[in-house]
């Protein structure tokens, strides 16, 4: 089993609903976020393009944050989800520095926090909160080992890219272009 997410940049309008839904689902404190929106504008008026992306932890197969964690708090569970055990985290911040996607933040309670792919929902067979809330249906989630999963099908049919491939992290967040 290999969980992954695909983000359709052709449909994302950058509304930030994924951010709020994550905040209320996961009790993320105000002023912090586990996912966020990136807007890239290219060209000059009137020859312009915008790419809008909803970003979060890439749940890398080769995760530098897990490798550098001195206590083993950062770890990978079934399905490839990268998690942080709050009680084992000493808040040293090495993982934050090592992440090429800037996906982690220091939680005010003293540990490092980030996207969990809503593991509490996913293990119940549900989608992450951000996927289920997105009004444009631009987020696709599922098991890459299952060829019939939403995410497998869309990655088969569409062009996609990953971010910072040069980092060699084997990220599991795909952007449909």
């Amino acid at each position: 089993m290999r969980y992954a997410m695909a983000v359709d940049t052709k449909k994302c309008v950058g509304c930030g609903d994924c951010v709020v839904a994550c905040q209320t689902e996961n009790n993320v404190p105000h002023g912090y976020c586990r996912d966020w929106i990136v807007e890239n504008v290219a060209g000059t008026y009137p020859k312009l393009e915008i790419e809008l992306r909803s970003e979060r932890c890439n749940h890398c197969e080769n995760a530098p944050c897990v490798r550098c964690c001195p206590t083993g708090a950062s770890h990978i569970v079934d399905g490839g989800i990268v998690l942080v055990t709050h009680d084992e985290c000493i808040g040293c911040g090495a993982c934050i520095e090592s992440c090429p996607y800037d996906a982690r933040y220091p939680h005010p309670e003293g540990y490092v926090d980030k996207c969990t792919f809503c593991v509490h929902r996913v293990t119940d067979g549900e989608n992450p909160a951000c996927v289920d809330v997105c009004p444009t249906h631009c987020l696709h989630f599922g098991d890459l080992d299952d060829p019939n999963s939403d995410v497998s099908k869309i990655l088969k049919n569409r062009k996609w890219k990953v971010l910072a491939p040069e980092a060699g992290t084997k990220p599991q967040l795909y952007f449909l272009t």
Binding site: E25, N26, N27, P29, H30, G31, Y32, H86, H107, P108, E109, C118, H120, D124
Partner: peptide, 22 residues
Amino acid sequence: HALSWDSVTAQFVADGDTSPVS
């Protein structure tokens, strides 16, 4: 205080509850 923990925790976390609830 944009990012101050003290003032922004009005929501649910005031009693140290920081995990999602099923």
